Amino acid sequence: MQMPTGFFSDTPLPNLSVDDVNFRAGRRASAVHRHAAVAAGMFGVMIDRWISRHFTRPSWYEGNAAAIEELETTDPVLTAQALRLMWGLGEGPLPNMVQLCESKGIRVYGLPPVAEVVDAFSGWSDGTPYIFLSRRKTPERSRFDIAHELGHLILHTTSVDSNAEAHHRQEEDADRFAAELLAPASSVAGLLPRQPSVDRVLTFRSQFRVSAMMTAKALLRSGRIDDAGYRRLCSALARRGFRSGEPGGMAQHERSRIFTHIFGTEAAEKRTSADRLAEELSLPVTDVHALTFGTQVHAVDTPTSPVSAHPMPAPTQPLKGSRLRLVKG
C-alpha cells in the first residue's frame, strides 16, 4: 500500500500492538492480515477523532458503563436479556444493528479488503467503544458479528486472554450473548412450534433478520427441537444452500446513519467528502471508503431511517489522543 507523504510526519498514530489483539478468524489470518487489521483500527480511530471535531454524535453514556459492570459477572444469556431490557428493546426483532450501536455511542467501522479475513474485532479508545467489521459475509451474519463484538465489549471489558482455552471460552460466551440478543429464546418459543417446518424457520429468519442456521441453533437452544431434529433441519437447510449463503435473505448490508449524514448519497447532501477527510488525515482514500463502508460511493435503493437535514454542530474541543485497547475478535 502506498501511503501519502504527510502520513509519516503528521499526528502520531494510536499506540496499538498486534500482540494485544485477538482475531476471530485467527487460524485463517496471516501475519499480513493481522497487521492490516491493527492498522485499520488505528486509521479508524483517526477518522473518528476527525468526525468528533466537526460533528456532534451520540456519546457512550457513563451510566451504561456502570450498569454493564454489574452485568459482566452474569451468564452471557442473562446479560443479553438484561441489555435488551436496559435499552428498551423488548423481545422482538432488533433494528438496524449498525445504527443501534451508533445510537448508544458505539462506533462501527469497516475493514479494508486486506484485513477482511479477521471478520471483526472490538475495543475501547478514550472510553469510547469501537467495533470493526468485515462485510464479506451475508448481511445476516454481519448482524451476528456486530452482536458478537458487542458481547465482547460488555462481557470482557478488562481482559484480553491469550490462553487458548480461555480465548475459546470467551468466544463461546460472545456467541451465546449474540444469539440471545438477536433471537431471544422466549421469542423462538413463542413464535415457532416444536419441530417446525423449514418454511416456518425461514419466516422467523426473515422476521428477525438472522441466518437460517442460527435459527436452527436457537430452536435447539430453546428446546423446540432435539439433537436429532436439529441435525435433520440443518441437512434440509444445507440442501437449499444455507450452509454457505442466505438464499432469499436481506438484500443489502445495514447502513450507518452517521456516515450517510456526513457523506450523503447525493451531491447536495454532502457535508464533507472522503477525499477531504483522507487529505486532512494523510490516509489513502480507498481506506477511508472501506472504513466508512463505502457510503459515499455506493448508492442504496431500499429506504432507511430518516436523517436530520441539518448539519451537526461542531464540539468546542477536539478529542485527545489515547491508546486503543483491542478486546476481542
Rank of each mutant, 00 (worst) to 15 (best):
F43Q: 12
F43I: 05
F43G: 07
G44V: 04
V45R: 07
V45Y: 03
V45K: 02
V45S: 06
V45T: 10
V45H: 07
M46G: 00
M46T: 04
M46E: 11
M46R: 06
I47K: 03
I47F: 10
I47H: 05
D48F: 13
D48H: 12
R49L: 06
R49C: 11
W50C: 05
W50L: 07
I51Q: 06
I51P: 01
I51N: 01
S52T: 11
S52H: 12
R53C: 13
R53P: 02
H54C: 14
H54I: 09
H54T: 10
H54A: 15
F55V: 10
F55H: 14
F55D: 15
T56M: 07
T56R: 09
T56Q: 06
R57V: 12
R57A: 10
P58W: 02
P58N: 00
S59M: 13
S59Y: 06
S59F: 09
W60I: 05
W60V: 05
W60T: 05
W60E: 01
Y61C: 05
Y61R: 11
E62P: 00
E62W: 09
E62F: 09
G63W: 05
G63T: 02
N64V: 00
A65W: 09
A65V: 12
A66M: 08
A66D: 13
A67V: 10
A67C: 13
A67I: 14
I68R: 10
E69D: 11
E69C: 11
E69M: 08
E70F: 08
E70V: 04
E70Y: 04
E70S: 13
E70I: 06
E70R: 04
L71S: 11
L71H: 13
E72I: 10
E72M: 05
E72V: 08
T73S: 08
T73I: 10
T74Q: 14
D75T: 12
D75L: 09
P76C: 05
P76L: 08
P76V: 09
V77F: 09
V77P: 07
V77W: 11
V77S: 10
L78K: 06
L78Y: 04
T79V: 08
T79A: 12
A80K: 01
A80I: 00
A80L: 08
A80N: 04
A80Q: 02
Q81E: 15
A82S: 12
A82V: 03
A82L: 09
A82Q: 04
A82D: 12
A82T: 08
L83M: 05
L85Y: 01
L85S: 04
L85C: 00
M86P: 04
M86N: 02
M86W: 08
W87S: 02
W87I: 01
W87R: 00
G88A: 12
G88T: 08
L89Y: 13
L89K: 13
G90Y: 00
G90A: 03
E91N: 15
E91Q: 12
E91C: 11
G92E: 15
G92N: 11
P93Q: 13
L94D: 03
L94T: 01
L94I: 01
L94M: 09
L94W: 05
L94E: 01
P95H: 02
P95T: 14
P95G: 06
N96D: 13
N96A: 06
N96T: 07
N96C: 11
N96V: 10
M97S: 03
M97Q: 00
V98A: 14
Q99V: 13
C101A: 06
S103E: 07
S103L: 09
S103C: 11
